[in-house]
Design a protein around this nucleic acid. Structure first.
Lengths: 223, 223
DNA sequence: TGTACATCAGTGAACGCGCGTTCACTGATGTAC
DNA sequence: TGTACATCAGTGAACGCGCGTTCACTGATGTAC
């Protein structure tokens, strides 16, 4: 019967979530490549082989964690991106990304750090991963910034137009390119701060970060 | 006697180098955290315990590799940074960094990727790590770019002035700050390309990269 | 409503693996007189 | 120049560890008639 079948299925879904939660907890302590199925199972009071009912292999669990992390970051940034003007939303989106990263350094490293060796990211992570750039593009669209007078090389213009067609038809290629610059800048700063490259210069980097985000907003053409 | 003592010592230094070379070779295949002392020893035809005559622990070997990587990158960028004008040197320095990274992805990941968990970078890596920013600053100094009319917050200005005093006395804080922005941007782009974040947008990213470096040069104020 | 059968979750033992590090040792290279 | 001793490089066995994954199993939950 429907109700009882879903009872089993609901238990199953719940345990799958508990496994991911526990794995995430371990991630925060130990880092992605020290993450072990056995110890996840141990902390849940199960035997390690039981996890194989839920994830066919360790890589699949990792993939689930990666998707969760992208989505957690996406949620955080989307709900941070509020403000009276598009420029204000841009700035708070950037700050939201940084805040989330500082609060979840290992999850951040899992998605924006060096790839876990031997692990090949499947296509499944793409939709979750693209939430941030899509959000950034939307904010810029709302601002109706004028096309910049950059001269793009033909190949670059083609690449950017191809992406823009998918997620933001009508976005000028020059603006699209500048968004990508800002996007790489944003995560470049966060990674540098988190991975210790800024120690000795602008660390802690709150002020530096907000300065840079302002300049990015100027660069893109936010009023 | 001097000559014979150095014979032993030279053999020692040479083997230490061979160990690092072999470790670097493995790094390129397998990634930093799969790197194993035993397999390095194996490939050198030694027994694993013999390595302990040269490196007191695996972490020390890793440290040596990190320093080597910073220096290799530093050498590459310094010798790439040539050109008629400071702006040309800036652009070719950036391109040199990217080229080196693409040619040595695992060494790049070792120094600019997420830190190896459990490994704490000792102070010894600092001089090698700072070569790049110092080079960038020198190029900007040569260009004698005027101070930007940014308003920096007091804390940020203080941070930047403190660094500038050490490596570039007289550098205006506004320019120093913009260099740090460009520096994070540069490695942000390289990391994004290398770690697969640009797949689906501007990958391969030669044209994007050179566009962005031009904008960075404008931003800093290169003529 | 009750019974016979199928599905599924979780167990526990085992396989085979490779790792970092220690330690007592042998033999070669260097040093002092 | 020759001998006695000290230093050092490299060996091989061992310790103790934890890992991912497989497999035959038990018992509970669901399904069909």
């Amino acid at each position: 019967m429907g109700a009882s079948r879903t009872a089993r299925e609901r238990a199953r879904a719940e345990l799958a979530r508990e496994i991911r939660d526990e794995a995430r907890r371990q991630l925060a302590v130990v880092g992605a490549d020290r993450l072990s199925l056995r110890s996840v199972a141990r902390n849940l009071g199960m035997v390690s082989s039981a996890l194989y009912r839920y994830f066919p292999s360790k890589d699949d669990l990792l993939t689930a964690l990666i998707i969760d992390a992208y989505n957690a970051l996406g949620d955080a940034v989307e709900s941070a991106a509020v403000g009276a003007s598009p420029r204000a939303r841009w700035l708070s989106a950037c700050a939201g990304a940084r805040d989330w990263a500082l609060a979840h350094p290992y999850e951040y490293a899992l998605i924006y750090g060096s790839p876990v060796p031997g692990y090949k990211a499947p296509r499944d992570t793409v939709p979750a991963a693209t939430r941030i750039p899509i959000l950034l593009v939307r904010i810029v669209l709302d601002a109706e910034v004028p096309a910049a007078e950059d001269e793009l090389t033909a190949g670059l213009a083609a690449q950017v137009e191809q992406v823009a067609e998918l997620i933001a038809p009508g976005l000028p290629a020059t603006v699209g390119t500048r968004i990508i610059v800002a996007w790489t800048q944003l995560f470049g700063m966060i990674s540098f701060e988190l991975f210790g490259q800024l120690v000795g210069s602008v660390d802690p980097s709150d002020e530096f970060f907000s300065y840079a985000c302002d300049r990015m907003a100027d660069f893109i053409g936010f009023p």
